[in-house]
Design a protein around this nucleic acid. Structure first.
Lengths: 82, 82, 82, 82
DNA sequence: TTGGGTTACCACGACC
DNA sequence: GGTCGTGGTAACCCAA
């Protein structure tokens, strides 16, 4: 292959890297959007930490959420922290 | 406001959360794409760790890259690691 | 100064690095101990994720814990997730 | 067992948690020491980022370090970044 | 048993 | 001085 450099297919390597860079750019754009939304929410007085917890809870199915909470409740009771 | 619950504007809160969830989904899609590209590169024999370093280097301007490397070179020389 | 290499006090640099390496070793030893304890707890049937949450809760003062929980409760109610 | 709470051996749970808390405290003390050393080095004009790289390099064996660097060099050459 | 993905944590830097 | 955002690090889990 004519485009080999040190046994490496230079064109293929370059293509992979450019694809990854393009995806990284898109991801950064979305992260910026997220920051904007959070700043807007914060500006209206919402608690960002609580919102983060909400987002995490909504990612779990109700079953696994209640399962986790019941284990935690038992442990808290065992420790007298309830 | 009719949609207040415990002093919180429920509709606004819900809107913020849904916007954030949508952005998180998009970001996940892109992360999946990145994984695909990396798997493809790996399948063709490329070294993923080296590619990651390349991506980091290309994010830096040439000036800051050479600046950082020259500091590091001095330290390595001072320690006899060169 | 006789021990300067490229304008860098080589002895001082070496000393800082060795102090940091020593501290890193100690920290690694403790991390290994933590892993052992967790493995032991897991081996006796305890839920590690719940234990992690317990540890986090105990690090917070009761006031900030109840403050955070009440905000979260209001948001969950506003979203009908309670 | 008399100390069971909700089917959980409360004493065992408490012991595990206290052991983990003690280890976490020790680790925090060491982290604080690391911060002190870094601040001292920075105060004498050393570049913390370069020192971090040095610490990482010294953790790798010379063989794996040169192996990684040679792969990277080939890739950089293939991309004309050298 | 090892490698990869996900996740959480922590220290650093910047900004206010 | 304290807070925010970010990057890097490491631990846990799973799958092969």
């Amino acid at each position: 292959m004519a485009n080999d450099v040190g046994g490496v297919a230079a064109d293929k390597l370059r293509t992979f890297i450019e694809r990854l860079e393009r995806l990284a750019e898109e991801k950064k754009g979305i992260s910026d959007d997220e920051k904007d939304v959070k700043a807007e929410a914060k500006g209206e007085g919402f608690d960002l930490k609580a919102i983060s917890i909400i987002l995490k809870l909504r990612k779990k199915s109700p079953e696994e959420r209640s399962e986790e909470e019941s284990v935690l409740a038992v442990y808290l009771a065992a420790l007298g922290m309830d």
